[in-house]
Design a protein around this nucleic acid. Structure first.
Lengths: 126, 126
DNA sequence: ACGTATACTCTCCTTTGGGAAGTAGGCACC
DNA sequence: GGTGCCTACTTCCCAAAGGAGAGTATACGT
C-alpha cells in the first residue's frame, strides 16, 4: 500500500495481515476512549479512569487495559499497599496512537452535526 | 476541548455527548475496513465489497452499510434489474472520515512490529 | 422445467459484554 | 476483638451482538 523508495515498507501478505490485525485490535470503542482519557489526564488510577471514560464496566475496563498493556500501549504500576493502588500511564507507543486518533476526534468534532443532518434527511426519505 | 478564537467550537456537554456518540459509532472494526475498501476501490457492489473486506458475514456487511448510509458516509444505488445490482460509493463525508482514519492506518503500518515486540516482551515477563 | 445469478433475510448457536455481588487484607473504630 | 471500609479486581448470570449457513425473489438462458 505504502511503498518507500528504499524498499523498507513493502506490502506483503504477511505485513498486510499484521496491519489488519492491528487495526482490528485498535478500532475498538473502549480502547479509543481509554486512550483519550489517559492522553488528557496523564497517570490515572483504575477507579478514576473508569469515571473518566464513563459507561464502562469494570470487567471491560480491566480487560481492555490488560490488552493495551500486552500491546505496549500503557504501563501498569502496582503499588503494593492496602487498599490496593494501581495506576496506568500511556507509553510512547500509546501516545503515538493517541496522536494518530487525533484526526478522528477532530473529524467527529467537525462533522457530528453533518451526521445528525444526514440521519434526519434519511428518515425523511423513509 | 478545542476552543476556536471565534467561539464557534465550544465544549458543551451536549456537543461532548454528540462527539462521543460519533466516536463510538465510527470506532468499529467493520466500519473502518469497509471505509478503507471503498476508499481504495471506488464504487463497488455488495458481494465484491464483502470479498474486498474479507471475513465479514453478509449480515454484518448489510447492517454496517445501512448504518453508514444512515450516517451519510455512503450512498447506496439500486439498479432495478434481475438479478439485483446494488452499488456503494463513499460520500464526501465518507471520504473525509477515510482521510481522518488515514493516520491510524499509517500508525498501524509503522508500529505493528513494535506491538509484536511488546507482546513478546510481555510474555517473557510472565 | 431447471439451474443461475445477486442481494439480501432468517434461523440457530456461539461469543461478547453488562450488572451486580464476591474477594483479599490491613487498618480505623467501637 | 469483632465490624466495616477501602480498592482493584474476579466471578456469575443473563442479555445482546455476531458468525455460519440455508432460504427467498425473479427473470433469463438452455
Amino acid at each position: 500500500m505504502v511503498l518507500s523508495p528504499d524498499g523498507t515498507k513493502q506490502s506483503t501478505p504477511e505485513i498486510d495481515a499484521l496491519v489488519r490485525e492491528t487495526i482490528e485490535r485498535v478500532a475498538d470503542k473502549w480502547t479509543m476512549l481509554i486512550l483519550e482519557a489517559l492522553e488528557e489526564h496523564g497517570t490515572v488510577r483504575f477507579t478514576r479512569l473508569g469515571e473518566l471514560v464513563g459507561g464502562v464496566s469494570q470487567k471491560m475496563l480491566t480487560k481492555t487495559l490488560r490488552q493495551m498493556e500486552y500491546d505496549g500501549l500503557v504501563t501498569r504500576t502496582v503499588h503494593p499497599v492496602i487498599p490496593p493502588h494501581v495506576d496506568y500511564t500511556l507509553t510512547e507507543l500509546g501516545h503515538s496512537l493517541g496522536a494518530a486518533f487525533c484526526g478522528v476526534w477532530q473529524w467527529a468534532e467537525k462533522y457530528h452535526d453533518a451526521i445528525t443532518a444526514s440521519r434526519a434527511a434519511f428518515s425523511r426519505r423513509g
